[in-house]
């Protein structure tokens, strides 16, 4: 309840630039994706003086209604958090040509043109996964590492492909064990499956597991704890979820994407089209701070940083599928 108190009472926007944001199902307080988008707006409010208001939709039809409502209210920029908004946002952008729109993880029907007032924000998750893949392989003593995905969909295959390539880049003889929790959305919220799958991988010899499985990852962390092995978090810094066993986290900086889009709008440089955030744009990264400094020896850190530079320069190509 006390946590909830701070969330109530967003006020009607009175600033010069007003922004509306619609959260993905799950809403505020997911400690991940949605909260990161919210952080981006809070930073924009502080640094750029914008005003914003958000809507947490319930079922599927609420998403479009909420976007439409925010556009009708006269917000200059309307943001949808999640790939599921893509086609709705594209249609609305055509209907409201004077309003700017942005969509996180934009992924509309192939071949559909992106309107000039819509910014589709995409992340090169495979690049970040490539780095943690290299890190996992360098850290591994058993020459075997694991990957646990959530729902078996192309978006998650990007994580897997980058990770596996990263492992093979530094250690061609290393083995990558890979499994998915399921084919339904619930595969992202199934810690029990996550624990079973990762226990199986640890038992087969893996000593580092990277998950891209939402709340299912909690099970991966539990397995890491009971086996005394390493796990790698995803999306945001997950160190606090299991301080004993998190080697690092592959972070996706939704807050930076949101903030930069708002800044472009305020500065009058907003551009439509698909915009990608990778290592070069610091849109994806891995965590290296006081919490895990002693877990990543300096020679491993140096090697991974060299790989980062290679990816940014283009001398290392990272596959996305």
């Amino acid at each position: 309840m006390l946590v909830g108190l701070g969330r109530g009472g967003q006020q009607r926007c009175t600033a010069d630039v007003c922004i509306g944001l619609v959260f993905d199902v799950g809403g505020l307080g997911d400690k991940s994706f949605n909260d990161a988008a919210h952080r981006g707006l809070l930073r924009a409010k502080e640094e750029l003086g914008i005003g914003f208001r958000y809507v947490e939709p319930g079922d599927g039809s609420d998403r479009e209604s909420a976007l439409r409502q925010l556009a009708l209210e006269g917000n200059q920029l309307v943001i949808g958090v999640g790939f599921i908004f893509s086609d709705d946002i594209r249609n609305l952008a055509e209907e409201f040509p004077d309003t700017k729109f942005a969509c996180i993880d934009y992924s509309a029907t192939p071949g559909a043109e992106v309107p000039s007032n819509l910014s589709g924000l995409r992340f090169r998750e495979h690049e970040g996964s490539f780095l943690v893949g290299a890190l996992a392989a360098l850290k591994s003593e058993s020459k075997s590492v694991g990957f646990v995905g959530g729902m078996d969909i192309p978006l998650i295959h990007k994580f897997e492909a980058g990770y596996e390539a990263g492992v093979k880049h530094v250690c061609p003889e290393c083995e990558v064990l890979s499994t998915y929790a399921g084919t339904k959305p619930e595969a992202f919220s199934d810690p029990i499956a996550g624990k079973e799958l990762s226990l199986a991988q640890y038992n087969r010899g893996a000593d580092v597991i990277f998950h891209a499985a939402g709340k299912t990852g909690t099970g991966v962390f539990n397995a890491a704890k009971s086996k005394g092995k390493w796990a790698i978090g995803v999306d945001s810094d997950q160190f606090d979820d299991m301080p004993c066993c998190i080697l690092t986290s592959m972070v996706k900086k939704v807050d930076i994407a949101v903030f930069e889009t708002v800044r472009d709008l305020v500065q009058g440089t907003f551009e439509g089209g698909v915009r990608e955030f990778g290592l070069a744009e610091q849109g994806v990264d891995y965590v290296f701070d006081d919490n895990n400094r002693d877990r990543i020896p300096s020679e491993i850190r140096a090697r991974v940083e060299a790989i980062r530079q290679g990816v940014i320069d283009g001398t290392i190509k990272v596959p996305s599928k």
Binding site: G4, R7, G8, G9, Q10, Q11, R12, G27, L28, R53, Y54, V55, E56, P57, G58, D62, S65, A66, Q69
Partner: peptide, 18 residues
């Protein structure tokens, strides 16, 4: 309630309507 819930989301979290 369900449509109004989206509107009053500006003041109270959606859980309240639920």
């Amino acid at each position: 309630l369900s449509n109004g819930g989206l509107e009053v989301n500006a003041f109270v979290p959606k859980e309240l309507i639920e």
